[in-house]
């Protein structure tokens, strides 16, 4: 009895050796093998018999099949997210492009002075509330940290004003004491001028500063965004900055989701190959068994 069971088990162990070398199940099988060797022989038989009852034969293909199912689901989700980002991008891109005239008079009048050296510096970091959008948030955080590093010393200090959940999550870890104000859920409603004007007013009233730098990602194309720092805080400049950043966010999300659906597709292809090979190997082994059994009876 135990012999039969062991033979069966041996066949199971041999199966992955027949199939392709990049079997993702190798590790799980190896661990179960190890578990068996630790047990006394009569226990092994017991464990094996129980697993046979539960359909242990198809366990390898079953795991691959489950994995394939979950990868397919992930791919569906990322594809849907890409579609959503694409449609949102189209809406926000026209608005961002139309608002580009708005800040130019201010920059023409006041110019850019990123090197201004004053005592109280405030860095307004604009980021997104939601993740899965590539590197735009970490870019603005990195640039903000850089500005903070340049503008802090024994006689000067820099504070952060944060827009968006993601930059807050990153900056809270190491510079919690420097965060003066953080505003989230900016994009719950579609961005409009009034809302941003109120927000800019809020910052101007509640934050003490000598110089203020806005850090945002300027939208160039779906795959390209340029970290930018502006030194004028007026509602108009802020409005454009927020729109540009939202536009970059959607663009970055779109390309990130595109590449992850492609990766999921690749993974699915590999898993399908593994699954088919394993299945074929099982069928072949079973056929060999039947044929050799039949020929043994004849002989």
């Amino acid at each position: 009895m135990a012999m039969i069971a062991l033979r069966r088990e041996g066949r199971r162990f041999a199966a992955p050796l027949i199939s392709n070398p990049i079997n993702p199940l190798r590790s799980s099988l190896a661990s179960s093998e190890c578990a068996f060797t630790c047990l006394p022989p009569n226990k092994i038989a017991y464990v094996i018999r129980e697993q046979v009852v539960l359909g242990v034969r198809s366990i390898s293909t079953q795991i691959v099949r489950n994995r394939m199912k979950s990868v397919r689901n992930i791919q569906k989700i990322t594809k849907a997210m890409k579609m959503v980002a694409a449609s949102k991008l189209r809406a926000i891109q026209t608005r961002a492009e139309n608002s580009r005239g708005l800040w130019q008079p201010f920059t023409a009048l006041l110019g850019d002075t990123p090197s201004v050296d004053v005592k109280k510096n405030v860095i307004v970091t604009i980021s997104s509330d939601k993740g899965l959008c590539g590197g735009i948030n970490s870019t603005s955080v990195k640039i903000s940290r850089g500005l903070h590093k340049i503008n802090s010393g024994p006689e000067k200090e820099s504070k952060y004003v944060i827009l968006g959940e993601k930059a807050k999550a990153q900056l809270v870890r190491d510079s919690k004491k420097d965060i003066e104000l953080s505003i989230t859920e900016l994009q719950k409603n579609p961005l409009n001028y009034t809302q941003v004007a109120v927000l800019a007013d809020d910052i101007l009233k509640n934050v003490e500063y000598d110089a203020l730098r806005i850090v945002f990602n300027k939208f160039h194309s779906v795959v390209q965004f340029v970290p930018t720092t502006s030194t004028v805080l007026s509602p108009e400049v802020m409005f454009n900055a927020v729109l540009e950043n939202a536009c970059s966010e959607q663009g970055a999300r779109m390309s990130a989701m595109d590449s992850s659906s492609r990766n999921a597709g690749d993974m699915l292809d590999r898993l399908t190959l593994t699954y088919n090979r394993t299945r074929q190997a099982t069928i072949t082994t079973e056929l060999i068994e039947i044929i050799s059994g039949a020929s043994a009876l004849e002989g």
Partner: peptide, 23 residues
């Protein structure tokens, strides 16, 4: 002046652009 001080402090990241570069 800004680009120089940025490159001195943070050599591994490019300095951010300013709006006047787009105008």
């Amino acid at each position: 002046k800004f680009i120089d001080s940025w490159k001195k402090t943070i050599p591994n990241i490019d300095p951010p652009k300013t709006p006047s570069a787009y105008m």
